[in-house]
Design a protein around this nucleic acid. Sequence first.
DNA 1: ACTATTTGATATGACCAATAACGATTATCG
DNA 2: CGATAATCGTTATTGGTCATATCAAATAGT
Lengths: 171, 171
Amino acid sequence: MTVSRTADPNVSKPAKVARDMAEPEDAGQIRMGELSELLGYSLKRAQLRVFDDFIRCMASLNLTPAQFSVLLLIDRNPGRNQTEIANTLGILRPNFVAMLDSLEGRELCVRVRSANDRRSHNLMLTDKGRGILARAKKLVATKHEARLNEVLGPANRAALLDMLATLARDF
Amino acid sequence: MTVSRTADPNVSKPAKVARDMAEPEDAGQIRMGELSELLGYSLKRAQLRVFDDFIRCMASLNLTPAQFSVLLLIDRNPGRNQTEIANTLGILRPNFVAMLDSLEGRELCVRVRSANDRRSHNLMLTDKGRGILARAKKLVATKHEARLNEVLGPANRAALLDMLATLARDF
DNA sequence: ACTATTTGATATGACCAATAACGATTATCG
DNA sequence: CGATAATCGTTATTGGTCATATCAAATAGT
C-alpha cells in the first residue's frame, strides 16, 4: 500500500488562510473527488488510525497488534504448533519464526518439542506471558475499545464489526 | 503490520476431517478467542481483502489503489504540487517521488515547473492519463464497488463508509 | 544582503511480505 | 522393509513500504 501512518493528511496548510486576494483563484482545500466514496480508501485510513491507537494504548507493555494476537491465540489454544497458529493469523511460517523468537526471548511463551511429532513445537504461554496478556486485555478493553465505543457508539461499533467480519469472510 | 495477504487464514485443515476417534481430543478448529471482537483485527483483515479485489479488478490497467488515488486527486486538482498531493494522501514527500516517476514514465501525468515558484512542480494528467483514469473509474464502479454492494447491500455499504470516515476523522 | 524556510530529490535504514530451499522427522505405500 | 513423498521449523533472499536525514535550488523574511 501507500498511505503512510505519520504523514498526517489534510493538514490543510493553515498558512495563508484567507488570502487577501490576488492569486490563481485556487489555493484552497484540495478536492477529494470520488475518493471519499471509495470503501478501500476509508478502510485503509481507518485501519491505520485504529492500529496507531492500539500501539499507543499498549506502549507500556510494548506489544504490537500482531504480537497481541499471537499471545491471545496461544493462550486460547495451548499446544498447537507454529504452522497452525501462523496460518490462522494469516502469517507465513517463515515470517512467524522471528516473531516467536522475540516473544520467547521476552519469556512470554515457549516452544516445546512435541513428543508425538518431533518436528513440531508445541506453543504455550509462560506465567509471565499470561500475566502480560491479562494486562494487555485490560488495556485494550479500558483504553482502546472504550475509545472506539465513544466515537462510534456501542450499536454502531457492533454493526461495524459485523460488516467487517462479513467482508473478511465472504468477499 | 503482520497479517499477510496470501497466507490464507483459517484454511481449517480439511485433511483428516471426521477422525475415527483416538486422538488427543483437540485437533479441531482453532479458537479465535476475543480476537473476533477486536475491531482492529477485523479492520485489517477486511482491508487486505478489499485491496486484493481492487488490484484484481484493475489488473488490465495495472493500477494500484495508491496510483489510482493519485491520478484521481491530480485530475480533480490540476496544478497542485507534489507536496500538496502527497500530503492529502498521507504519503511522505520522499516516497512520492518514485511513485510520480512511475506514473510520469507511463505518460499518465506530467510535472511542469511552476512559473510563480520555480521550486515546485505543477502536476496534471495527460490525455492518456485521463483516459486511463476514466476506464479505471468504470472498472471500480462496475466490478469492485458493485461486488461490495452485493456482499454488504447498499444500505450497509453506506453505513460502513460513514463509520470508517468517522474513525479516520475523529479517532 | 543574510538567514531561514520550502520544494523536490537522494540515500539509507527499518520493517513486512513472499518464495525457495534445507535438515530433520514422519507418512505413504509398493 | 525400504524408497519416496510430505511436513515442520528454519534460513536466506528478494521486493515492497514506511520513515528519517540530508542536499541543492529557489524563495521568503528581516
